[in-house]
Amino acid sequence: MSGPALGLAVAVFLACAVEAVEALTIVLAVGATRSWRSALAGVLAAALALSALVGALGPTLVLLPLSALRLVVGALLLLFGLQWLRKAILRYAGYKALHDEQEEFERARQEAARAGAPARGRLDGYSFAISFKGVLLEGLEVAFIVITFGANQHRVGLAAATAAAAVAVVALAGVLARRPLARVPENALKYGVGVMLCSFGSFWSAQGAGARWPGSDLSLLFLIGGYALCGYLMARLLRAIGAPAPMPERELLMGAEVVR
């Protein structure tokens, strides 16, 4: 597998895993509290809607001129990447609360319990709608990344297969654990995805605008390393000069260990 293809696979896998964890939390909360059958029906419906979207947009994007596609898609990836990177750094420095899947699970579970008892033997509209909405919204961002990465490198199949693998891994972990995946180092994953999106976004959009990268595809590695290092230094600096309020729990930005 070539360097850019490997980079594509890693970026898509990480982004899909993060979004799948968030979607899984919602589905688990609704399923455990009200109706597994209706929650899973919502998941299936959202998966079909997303598949239709990818199927409709993917081939259309491949037909566009490559330089225009790289310019537009690269710019969008860069915007996404900056958002992910900024939020991950702010979370690390204590300026934003860390995403707590256990807390999110409890909140969703209480809301589901308050919504009234589901009718026996019939499809529970609440479970279906909440699962559908959660999976569709989280999946839309992933679908966008799959389509744009795949179309840009003409590897839609690889991007889709990687996304499917990430979702399958998270779903399997959720089924085995039967509870929210609270120990996933989500902020570190989001930081990694932010770096990858910024790197691919810069690379493609500059190419689309007519620039030539020294070393061609090899410069992607320097972009990834450079952005990761700069982001890490900014995060350390922001944390050193003091957060507005200390956060009780922290997870390492670059390391694998999660302190909870």
Partner: peptide
């Protein structure tokens, strides 16, 4: 030579964005 513009812009924009938030 146009390639240095975006990497520099990304680092600068990120730093400015974090500063604004702070």
């Amino acid at each position: 030579s146009a390639w240095p513009v975006l990497p520099l812009a990304v680092v600068l924009l990120l730093a400015l964005s974090l500063r604004r938030e702070r």
